[in-house]
Simulated scan of single mutants.
Amino acid sequence: MDKIVVFETYYNPIEANIVKTRLIDSGVQCFLSDENTITINPLYTQALGGVKLHLFERDVETARNILQDEDVQIALDNAVEQQSDSIAEDKDPNVIACPVCGSTNVGYVQATKKRFGIFTIIVSLLLLVYPFSVKKTHHCFDCKHEFE
């Protein structure tokens, strides 16, 4: 019976899947472990030791030869780079910048100035309750400017 060994460990599940697919396309049987756990919660990467690529011990040299091919390594690096670029672009398509300082360190939060409207103040005083409605605005955390 053939022994299954851990061939390599990856901290990026995308890179691990690319290598796995390359090996499977070349006829080397392999599988990944801890991939789902790390994909769901990336903070477990260090605790689990990354995504592990397993294959048969007899295929270790074949797998090294396949992955040492420079064209494959360049294609792998480009694929991982394109994937990380597309993820970075998808995060903030509508970045809001402060009109005063130009910073993008802006949040949509409860206003610190003029946060209660006149109607809210009157109703709150009549009912003797804390104001129930507050205004929200964009707030720059660098220059403290508030804007709509």
Rank of each mutant, 00 (worst) to 15 (best):
V28E: 11
S124Q: 05
R115E: 05
T104I: 07
Q29M: 11
G50C: 08
G27K: 04
T62D: 03
R64Y: 07
L55H: 03
H139W: 08
S33R: 13
I24W: 10
F147E: 07
E81W: 03
I118D: 13
A16E: 09
N41E: 11
A97W: 08
I74S: 14
F147I: 02
F7R: 02
F7Q: 00
L76M: 12
G107K: 05
L128N: 01
L53D: 00
N78E: 15
K113R: 15
E15M: 06
I18A: 00
A75P: 12
K3F: 13
T37C: 02
R115C: 09
L67T: 03
T112I: 11
V100R: 06
Y11F: 15
F141K: 14
E35I: 00
E146F: 05
Q110T: 14
C140T: 08
Y108P: 00
T39N: 06
K113I: 07
T21K: 10
D85V: 10
L67A: 08
Y44I: 12
T45I: 00
T9I: 01
L32R: 03
G102Y: 01
H54L: 09
N36S: 08
T112Y: 09
K20N: 09
V106G: 03
E146L: 13
Y10I: 01
D69I: 12
N36E: 07
Y108W: 09
N94P: 02
Y130D: 13
G117Y: 14
N65C: 11
P93S: 13
N41V: 05
D34G: 05
